[in-house]
Design a binder for these strands. Structure first.
Length: 593
RNA sequence: UGGGGAGUCGCCAAGUUGGCCAAGGCUCCGGAUUUUGAUUCCGGCAUUCGAGGGUUCGAGUCCUUCCUCCCCAGCCA
C-alpha cells in the first residue's frame, strides 16, 4: 500500500503534505528503526531502518459508530501514508473501559475496510490496541514519579476542580504535591493492586499550576477504575488518561505525524513534554512523533454529535444507526453512498486549520460524479398514472407485445443491453402529463407529442377522470414508424422524452424516497432543540413500477433510475420476492421545480 | 479580562522565504451536443485577500492597531 506520489500534475497540497515533504527532504525521520512491532526504545533498537517513510494512525475510541467526520480522518491518515510511501496504523484508543465494546471494534474495522483502506503493509497487520501498551504505560508512570515529574494526589475531584483555578486565575498547588517520591510510588502500586476505591487517589503530572494553559496545571494521567475492560478483562483497575496514553501510543508505534483535530491543540505542549521526559529517560526512541491539528469536518443539515445521534436512534426518529438518513458510515452505505464518492468528497473539501462549513450538496454532487459513469440505468415509474395506447391494435394487431432494447449505460456500450416490452397499457409519471401545460413544458398534453424512451413517439389525445376530477388514465396513440433505433426514428422531432414501464410486465417495488434528515442548515445551532429541526418528510415510501429486470438486482447495487436519480437495492430488506430500493440522491434538475 | 487557533469569490481552497494579470475544484451564468430538462463539451465568473494605518520601486504575503469566529477550567476522548 505504498504507491509513491505520482508525477501527474500534482494537486495543490495542504499544510500537512507541506510538512511531510519538508520532513522527508530534511530526513527528519530517516534514522528511525522499526523492529516489526510497537515497542520501547530498547525494542526498536533491535530493528532495521523503518521501511515506512512515515507512519500515521487512525485512532478511534471503540465507543460508537463512525460517521462522516471520521471518514475524513480515515481518508486523511491512510491517504497520506499511501501518498508518501508510509504506513497508517489502525489503532483503538481503548483506555476507558466503561464506554468501550468489542461490537464497536468490529464495526469500525468494517467501516475502514469498506471505505477502501487497509492496515496491512510490509507483510504485517498494523492493527493495534492502546490496551496492549498498559504495561509500558504503567512503567512510564512509575518512571515519572521516580524523577519527580508525577505524584499521587488524594484531593477529591471537586477539590481538584476548585484548585485548578480559572481561565484568568492561576490554580493552587495540591497539599499532596510535594509528597515524598517513595510515598507516591507506594500509593501508585496500591492503586494498581486494588486497595483503593474509584476516585480516592489519582496520579498527576507535576508541571505548573499557574500555567496559562490549563492542560499543564498538573493534569491527571492515571485514575482508578474498577471496571471490566473489553480486552484486558479485570487485569487492571488503573487506567491511563488520553492525555498520557495517546503520546505514548504514538511513540511506541514509531508514528511520525500524529494528526488530530483542532480541539487538541492545547494538549500539544503536554504531548511534547511527556515524550521528552520519557525519551531522556531512555524509555522511548527518538526522533519522537509530532502532533498536528486540522479542522474537523462540518456539513450543513448534518449533526455528528454522538449524544444526539444516539438520541435519534433511541427515540426512534430514525430506524437505527444504519438508517439511510444517518451520517454514520453504515447509514451512508445503506443510503447508497460509495467509498469512492466519500473519498472524492474528502479530497474536494481539503484539509486546513480553519473551520469550515461544507454545503450538504457537495456530498450529493460527489456521489453523482462517482455514480454517473458506473451505475446501470433503469426505467422506473415512482408516481404512476396509466396511459393507454388507443391505436395499438391497428398498428400492431391485437395481443402483440413490442420488444424494446436499451443500453445498460448510454456511454458504455460494453456494459451490454437490457430488454423489455412495450404493451398497450403502460405506467408513466403523473407529472409527465398536464392538461394545461405551463410555458416551456414539453412532455404530454393534449395535442402534443413525446417519445416513450427506447420506444415510439406518441401523440397525446387527452385523459379520463373519475367523478372527483382526478386523472385516471392518459390517452395517446402510437405514431407509426418512429421506433427508437429504426431509420424512421427521427422522422418526427419531439422535445420531450418520457420514461415508462409496461403495466402488464413491470414489477412493483417498495421505494423509499429519502431527503435530508433536518430541514434547517444548522440543526443544533444556538443550543436549541435539534429535534425541532427534524424534516418531517425525510422519508417517504412509495410503491413504484420498475423495469422487469430489476427484480434480479443484488442488494447494495446502485442504479440510475432515468430522470429520477440514483437508487440502491436496500442492503437489509431487498431480496428474493421483495424489491426494495432506497433513493440515494436525485439527479441535478435545472428545470425549475 | 488568561492561553491557544482561524479569517483569500456563493461553498471549499492554493498562495512557505514580499515581485510576471490572485492557482484549482464545486456551485452558478451563457452557449453547443444529447432519445435522461441528466451526462459531456466550450466560454464566463475576486483591480482584490476581515478592517484601518505603516514599511517598500513593489504586500494576501513584513510591521502595527482594531474587528469577528472557534477551542480550553472531565478522575471523557
Amino acid at each position: 500500500m505504498s504507491t509513491p506520489k505520482d508525477t501527474a500534475p500534482a494537486q495543490a497540497g495542504n499544510f500537512l503534505t507541506n510538512i511531510i515533504e519538508r520532513d522527508l527532504e530534511a530526513g527528519t525521520y530517516a534514522s528511525r528503526r522499526w523492529a516489526g512491532s510497537p515497542g520501547d526504545a530498547t525494542h526498536q533498537a533491535t530493528g532495521q531502518a523503518d521501511p515506512a517513510k512515515i507512519r500515521t494512525r487512525f485512532p478511534p475510541e471503540p465507543n460508537g459508530y463512525l460517521h462522516i467526520g471520521h471518514a475524513k480522518s480515515i481518508c486523511l491518515n491512510f491517504g497520506l501514508a499511501r501518498d508518501f510511501g508510509g504506513v497508517c496504523h489502525m489503532r483503538f484508543d481503548d483506555t476507558n473501559p466503561e464506554k468501550e465494546e468489542q461490537e464497536y471494534v468490529d464495526s469500525i474495522l468494517d467501516a475502514v475496510k469498506w471505505l477502501g483502506f487497509g492496515w496491512e503493509a510490509n507483510d504485517s497487520a498494523h492493527l493495534y490496541f492502546a490496551s496492549d501498551y498498559f504495561d509500558f504505560m504503567y512503567r512510564a508512570a512509575q518512571y515519572l514519579i521516580e524523577k519527580g515529574h508525577a505524584y499521587v494526589d488524594q484531593q477529591s475531584a471537586e477539590e481538584m476542580r476548585a484548585n485548578r483555578g480559572t481561565l484568568t486565575e492561576a490554580g493552587t498547588n495540591s497539599p499532596w504535591r510535594n509528597r515524598p517520591t517513595e510515598d507516591s510510588l507506594r500509593l501508585f502500586a496500591e492503586m494498581r493492586s486494588g486497595r483503593h476505591p474509584d476516585g480516592s487517589l489519582i496520579l498527576r503530572a507535576k508541571i505548573d499550576m499557574a500555567s496559562p494553559n490549563i492542560n499543564l496545571r498538573d493534569p491527571a494521567i492515571y485514575r482508578i477504575r474498577h471496571a471490566e475492560h473489553h480486552r484486558t478483562g479485570d487485569k487492571w483497575c488503573v487506567y491511563p488518561m488520553y492525555t498520557f496514553a495517546h503520546p505514548i501510543e504514538d511513540a511506541l508505534e514509531q508514528i511520525t505525524h500524529s494528526i488530530c483535530t483542532l480541539e487538541f491543540e492545547d494538549q500539544r505542549p503536554f504531548y511534547d513534554w511527556l515524550l521528552e521526559r520519557l525519551a531522556e529517560g531512555g524509555l522511548l526512541a527518538k526522533p519522537l512523533p509530532h502532533q498536528y491539528e486540522f479542522a474537523r469536518l462540518n456539513v450543513t443539515y448534518v449533526i455528528t454529535s454522538k449524544r444526539k445521534l444516539k438520541q435519534l436512534v433511541d427515540d426512534k426518529h430514525v430506524d437505527g444507526w444504519d438508517d439511510p438518513r444517518m451520517p454514520t458510515i453504515v447509514g451512508l452505505r445503506r443510503r447508497g453512498y460509495t467509498p469512492e464518492a466519500l473519498q472524492l468528497f474528502c479530497e474536494r473539501t481539503g484539509t486546513t486549520k480553519s473551520s469550515s462549513l461544507i454545503d450538504y450538496s457537495s456530498l450529493e454532487i460527489a456521489l453523482r460524479d462517482d455514480l454517473d459513469s458506473k451505475a446501470a440505468r433503469a426505467m422506473v415509474v415512482l408516481d404512476p398514472v396509466k396511459l393507454k395506447l388507443s391505436n395499438w391494435d391497428e398498428v400492431f394487431g391485437t395481443g402483440h407485445v413490442e420488444p424494446c432494447s436499451a443500453p445498460v449505460h448510454p456511454h458504455h456500450e460494453e456494459m451490454g443491453r437490457r430488454q423489455f416490452n412495450l404493451t398497450p397499457e403502460i405506467w408513466i409519471e403523473r407529472e409527465d402529463f398536464m392538461e394545461v401545460p405551463p410555458k416551456g413544458y414539453h412532455r404530454l398534453y393534449p395535442g402534443n407529442m413525446s417519445r416513450l424512451k427506447y420506444g415510439y413517439v406518441i401523440k397525446c389525445n387527452g385523459c379520463e377522470k373519475d367523478a372527483a376530477g382526478n386523472i385516471t388514465t392518459v390517452l395517446a396513440e402510437i405514431v407509426p414508424d418512429t421506433k427508437s433505433g429504426t431509420p424512421g426514428a427521427d422522422s418526427v422531432k419531439v422535445k420531450g422524452v418520457i420514461t415508462w414501464v409496461s403495466a402488464s410486465e413491470g414489477a412493483s417495488a417498495e421505494v423509499r424516497l429519502y431527503d435530508r434528515l433536518f430541514s434547517e442548515a444548522h440543526p443544533d445551532a444556538g443550543g436549541r432543540d435539534f429535534l425541532e429541526a427534524l424534516n418531517p418528510q425525510s422519508k417517504q415510501v412509495v410503491t413504484a413500477y420498475v423495469e422487469p429486470g430489476l427484480a434480479a438486482a443484488t442488494a447494495g447495487t446502485s442504479f440510475q433510475f432515468e430522470r429520477h436519480g440514483y437508487f440502491v437495492a436496500d442492503l437489509k430488506d431487498h431480496g428474493a420476492g421483495r424489491i426494495v430500493f432506497n433513493r440515494t440522491t436525485t439527479l441535478k434538475d435545472s428545470w425549475a421545480k
